[in-house]
Design a binder for these strands. Structure first.
Lengths: 225, 225
DNA sequence: TTCATATCGAGAAACATTTCTCGTTATTAT
DNA sequence: ATAATAACGAGAAATGTTTCTCGATATGAA
């Protein structure tokens, strides 16, 4: 029997980064459809609503292992389950958060993460005044405890929401604590061993894309003279 | 005389989206180099620090119109100026912010935007309790005033930081107010006239990419049996 | 002064992603 | 029961992005 024949065939499919980025968007969109009582949906339909090419939607969804029905589309509940399974949203990952400024608090308070299989289990700060206080149900701990605690709790994911100047130091503490993936919101290039994965989340990037697009439309016509 | 010959030759160069996303990263990196007193830098050097291919760095920087010196590299001050010029960070864009929850407050309080040529000139909320209060020096206004005020102040850019359920409504108010570009932090697909540019900033996307990469490393090996 | 070297710039090649095309299949209407 | 249609799936083509290659040039050493 070949492995493709098994019922729950979880082949190790690989998704490109653009596809990966779109999957959560599909998921959220499908959730709203489901809430409105819809049962099935086609790629054409999704593409219309999300301003995407239907074929691209089909290719994106295919990586999750879903199978659709010709003339009908996909069953929304199945599709949601496949995306969640594929993105690993079923098994929770525990994470540490460093930095409890505005952004850190926004992340701490974001309910959505639970759905995405992410749980922030401890928050750290270097500000004496903040240590010991509670934010969104999390007691804030001193950042110099981070490495030790991460190792003891076997934490794998770290989130950096500190000012740029402090980011490198915090990243090193995380690496020391055995953390293997860092979600970095500080606008700073972290220098770390190559084994540690870094996902940089830079607000300025999105802004740059938008500004460029707006600029191109709203006549940056260069005078010919 | 051909237009290429002019001294300040600002040709309308186009940058791909990946390039646009990297430019702010280079900018920040170069700033820190400049602060440390460095004068020049090569693509090789940048690539090493930022984990990027040197050729890619060269191609990225080329779109800004910078010219380097063989064997030396680029003058950092020139390079910073070129990136700022190219991204339009010299002429300030005024923006409206809708939603003053944690994320909205983080955005309001983010000093960095000034450097990126973005100024949030007014913040809006629908919560009666918040209206009239002041956050980071901004008085919070009722969201039903948004459209009118945007039109009167000729605002072009809107930032949405409201819950997903309210996003569509706010987006429509922005459209009504003549806003042509929307930076959307709500995890919701906005349905708007095609003339309005929408840049979706979805936290879950970055998380999905990171989770997938971590998952691929940390043995999702499928048992052969 | 001449040579070796590091780096730029531009075009070519390789690779990745998106879009197109076509054959197949389930539903609905005749 | 049959035909028309909407939509899937898979492979091909087109497009976009990254990486490679090579000639030119500025610096520093012999």
């Amino acid at each position: 029997m070949t492995k493709e024949q098994t019922e729950g065939n979880k082949q190790e499919r690989v998704a490109s980064e653009p596809t990966l980025r779109r999957l959560p968007t599909y998921h959220h969109y499908l959730k709203t459809l489901a809430e409105r009582g819809r049962d099935v949906v086609s790629c054409t339909h999704i593409g219309n609503d999300l301003r995407l090419d239907p074929t691209q939607v089909r290719k994106d969804l295919a990586v999750t292992g879903i199978r659709g029905l010709p003339k009908v589309g996909y069953r929304i509940d199945q599709l949601l389950a496949c995306i969640e399974e594929f993105l690993g949203w079923n098994n929770t990952t525990e994470a540490f958060l460093a930095g409890t400024g505005h952004l850190g608090q926004a992340l701490l308070g974001y309910e959505g993460f639970k759905r995405y299989g992410l749980e922030i289990v401890a928050a750290f700060d270097s500000d004496e005044a903040k240590i010991g206080t509670t934010v969104a149900g999390h007691k804030i701990l001193p950042v110099d405890k981070l490495a030790n605690l991460a190792r003891r709790m076997k934490i794998r994911l770290g989130i950096i929401a500190v000012p740029a100047a402090a980011a490198q130091q915090v990243a090193e503490a995380m690496a020391e604590g055995g953390i293997t993936g860092i979600w970095n919101f500080a606008p700073a290039a972290l220098s770390l061993p190559p084994a540690i994965l870094v996902q940089n989340e830079n607000l300025a990037s999105g802004l740059a894309v938008l500004s460029a697009k707006i600029g191109r439309l709203s006549g940056l016509e260069i005078p010919r003279e």
